[in-house]
Design a binder for these strands. Structure first.
Lengths: 226, 226
DNA sequence: CAGTTAAATGAACGGCGTTTAGCAAGGCAG
DNA sequence: CTGCCTTGCTAAACGCCGTTCATTTAACTG
C-alpha cells in the first residue's frame, strides 16, 4: 500500500506538472497573439501536445485562460494579505502602498490582466467548470474585502473621513481596472509609451487626499456617506 | 441630370436606411445575447435579411458592432461639447455635472457600453475598415480633449490645483470605464442591484475634492454628500 | 505473456463568420 | 412585348476553429 500510495502521489504531481506546462505554453501564445487570435492549436503546438490532449487537463479554452487569471489574482491576493497584516504601516500609508502593489501586479503580467478585465463582465464565464468560476469569484471578493477593511481601519483610526468602505474599495478597484484598460488601449497606438505607473499613482494620491480627515479645517469632517 | 441626381440621392438614403435597420436589429440581438453569443444569423433574422446581405452594408461582424459603439460615443461627445460650452457653469460645476452626464451615457445603453470597453483594448479592432477605426479613435480622443480642457479651465480660474490636465482626464475616463465594468460584473451575480450611479457619483465627488484649490473651497463644493 | 490502465492522438463533427456565384425584379431601348 | 442591364438580395458552399471520440501506444501488474 505504501507503494500504491507513492504511485498515486507521483501520478497526481505528474498531472499537475502537465497542467503547469500547458499553462506556460498558453501564456506565451496569449502574449504573442492575444486571446481571441490564439488558437487551441497554437497552444497545443507550443506545449508539444495534440490539441485533444489539452482537453484532458482543462475543460475548454476559456478554462485555460481563466486558470492563468487565477495565478495573477492569487498574486494580488497574497500581496494584499501581506499589506493588510503589516503592523508597521497605518491605514494611510497602506493606501499609499497600493500604488506600488498594483503596479507590481500590473508588471506581473499586464496582458493577462487586460483580458482578465475583459472576462470580468463578459459572457465568457458561463461555460466554465463551476469550481473554477467559484474560485474566481471567491478570490476577487476576498481582495475587495481586504481593501475595504484597510479603509475602515483608517476611518476607525480617525485618519479618513467616514464613507461606505465597500464603495471606496469599489472605487479603487474600478480605477485600477479602468487605468489598466485605458493605458493599454493607448499603447495600441503608441506602443512604446506606458503611463500606467504615473496615472495610477496620481489617481491613488488624489484618492488619498480626498478621504483624509483634515483636522485643522473642521468642515470636511462632517462628510458622511449617503 | 436633375433626374439622375435625384436617383443617386434616393439610392444613398435608401442604403443609409438599410444600414440603420441592420444596426437596430443588431442592437436588439446584442442586448439579448451579448456580443460573442450573438451570431450573424441572429442579426440577419432579426433584420429580416439573409446573413450575406449584411456584408453588403458592413465589412464584418465587428464592423456592425463598432458602428453601434460609435452611436454611443457620438452621444457622449455631444453631451461633453454642450457642457464645455456652457457659460453658466464654472469648471468645478462642470466637473460635478459629469456625474449626471456619464450616468446618462450609462443609461443610453449600458450593454453596448460594456462591450465598447471590451473592444477598447482588445484585438478586435484590427480587421475593421480603417475609416471606421479612425473615426473611433478620433471621437474618443475628442472626448478626452474636452475633459482635459475643462480641467485646465478650472486651473486657470484658480479653482483647481495644478496637475497635468491630460492625466486628470485619463483618470476620469478610467474611473468611468472601470466603474461600468465592475458594476456590470457585480450585476451578473445580483442582477437586480445597480450601484453605478452611487459609486460613480461618489468617485467624482472625491475627485473634485481632491483637486480643488484649498482657498476656493467655498460653500458649493466641499464634501461629497450625495 | 496476457490483461488492465493511463496518456495521448488523428480524424471527424458542428458551429459560425465570410465569400461567391447566381437569381428575381424593375427600368429602358428597340 | 423582347432582350438586356442594373440593383438588391440570397442559397449554398468554404474554411477556420473549438471540441469530441474511437483508437493507439506505452507502462505496469500478476
Amino acid at each position: 500500500m505504501g507503494i500504491s500510495e507513492r504511485k498515486k502521489r507521483e501520478k497526481e504531481s505528474q498531472q499537475k506538472r502537465r497542467q503547469a506546462e500547458i499553462l506556460d505554453a498558453a501564456k506565451r501564445v496569449f502574449h504573442r497573439k492575444g486571446y481571441s487570435a490564439a488558437t487551441v492549436d497554437d497552444i497545443a503546438r507550443s506545449a508539444e501536445l495534440s490539441p485533444a490532449a489539452l482537453y484532458l487537463y482543462f475543460k475548454n479554452k476559456d478554462d485555460i485562460y481563466v486558470s492563468l487569471n487565477l495565478q495573477l489574482l492569487n498574486y494580488l491576493f497574497e500581496r494584499l494579505s501581506a499589506l493588510e497584516k503589516d503592523k508597521g504601516l497605518n491605514a494611510d500609508k497602506k493606501v499609499e502602498a497600493l500604488k506600488k502593489l498594483f503596479y507590481d501586479v500590473f508588471c506581473f503580467d499586464h496582458l493577462i490582466l487586460v483580458n482578465l478585465f475583459h472576462l470580468q463582465a463578459s459572457d465568457g464565464l458561463q461555460n466554465l467548470p463551476p469550481e473554477r468560476a467559484d474560485r474566481l469569484n471567491e478570490i476577487a471578493s476576498s481582495c475587495l474585502r481586504i481593501l475595504s477593511s484597510i479603509l475602515e481601519e483608517g476611518m476607525n483610526q480617525g485618519l479618513f473621513n467616514r464613507h461606505h468602505p465597500t464603495a471606496l474599495a469599489d472605487i479603487i478597484w474600478s480605477t485600477f481596472t479602468g487605468t489598466v484598460l485605458w493605458e493599454e488601449s493607448k499603447r495600441m497606438v503608441n506602443p512604446e509609451k506606458n503611463f500606467f505607473k504615473e496615472t495610477f499613482g496620481l489617481a491613488i494620491d488624489l484618492f488619498r487626499k480626498s478621504i483624509q480627515a483634515q483636522r485643522a479645517v473642521g468642515s470636511s469632517a462632517a462628510c458622511g456617506r449617503l
